[in-house]
């Protein structure tokens, strides 16, 4: 069994969101980079748990990004990835990125491909589903639980207002959500070992970009909070009804 985990680099959740170059690019000054939390906490750690249960499983990592993503790839290797593949290009358009990973995936013949449910920067929630279409395999999104029985996966996935249990034969692409696994911290042995694990770099294959970012902007600041005295909460209810027309 071979599992490919797609990992993306995102700004730390506390990073200041500001834009540069006339609001056409994210201002990276002083930003700390992390593995996209959904990719790390749920997709990668779940894959590691599967390998702990069955050591014959092989765990590969895929990343589309420039050389500056290598620190986060090394971290993913420290956590338990065994071998990583980086496609050396900027990740701009979702279809372009999915096409790069599809190319890796076809070459590697994976049984299972994990992604996070979305990235916390672009919030595209697209790569997994696109990848499944490019590979012509089933896709399950927002998985919160997964069990493997040889070639059959039983997956609990989130639906609007509840959960659903699906059963399917591999290969498949699965996007992972909270519940799949719990965040882990890499240990010293992992960090030392990660340095010598293979990290293959390849140039992108030809693929179209369907979209491009024109500009970014920030939401307008709130006008300021209207404070209501704690001994008159009924005033809040009146304002919500008459002024905000919200109730």
């Amino acid at each position: 069994m071979k599992i490919l985990i797609c990992i993306s680099k995102t700004p730390d959740t506390t990073a200041k969101i500001a834009f540069a170059d006339n609001n056409t690019s994210f201002a990276t000054d002083g930003v700390q980079w992390i593995i996209n939390p959904y990719d790390e906490w749920y997709a990668l750690v779940k894959a590691i748990e599967l390998k702990e249960a069955d050591p014959s499983i092989v765990l590969h990592l895929a990343n589309v990004g420039g050389a500056d993503t290598e620190p986060i790839i090394r971290k993913a290797l420290a956590l338990g990835g065994e071998e990583a593949f980086r496609v050396n290009t900027d990740n701009t358009d979702s279809f372009f990125v999915a096409s790069q990973i599809a190319h890796l995936a076809k070459a590697g013949n994976y049984d299972l491909i994990f992604t996070g449910k979305e990235t916390i920067d672009y919030n595209g929630a697209s790569i997994g589903a696109m990848l499944s279409e490019l590979l012509d395999v089933p896709f399950i999104s927002h998985a919160v639980k997964l069990e493997l029985n040889n070639n059959v996966a039983t997956v609990t996935r989130e639906i609007e207002g509840g959960e659903e249990i699906n059963k399917l034969s591999l290969p498949a692409v699965i996007s992972c959500q909270k519940g799949m696994a719990e965040q882990r911290i890499p240990n010293m042995k992992g960090i030392m070992g990660a340095r010598s694990k293979p990290l293959h770099v390849s140039e992108p294959v030809e693929a179209a970009a369907y979209t491009s970012i024109v500009s970014f902007d920030l939401p307008p600041a709130k006008a300021g909070v209207k404070l209501i005295p704690a001994d008159h909460p009924e005033e809040l209810v009146r304002l919500l009804n008459e002024e905000a027309k919200a109730i």
Partner: peptide, 24 residues
């Protein structure tokens, strides 16, 4: 709609139709 169902479908259809997608 950019709901759980929409997120699973729109990107797949995007690939099938070679149609650019903006989600959200």
């Amino acid at each position: 709609s950019n709901t759980i169902t929409g997120k699973a479908l729109a990107p797949r259809v995007s690939v099938r139709l070679k149609a650019g997608l903006v989600s959200g």
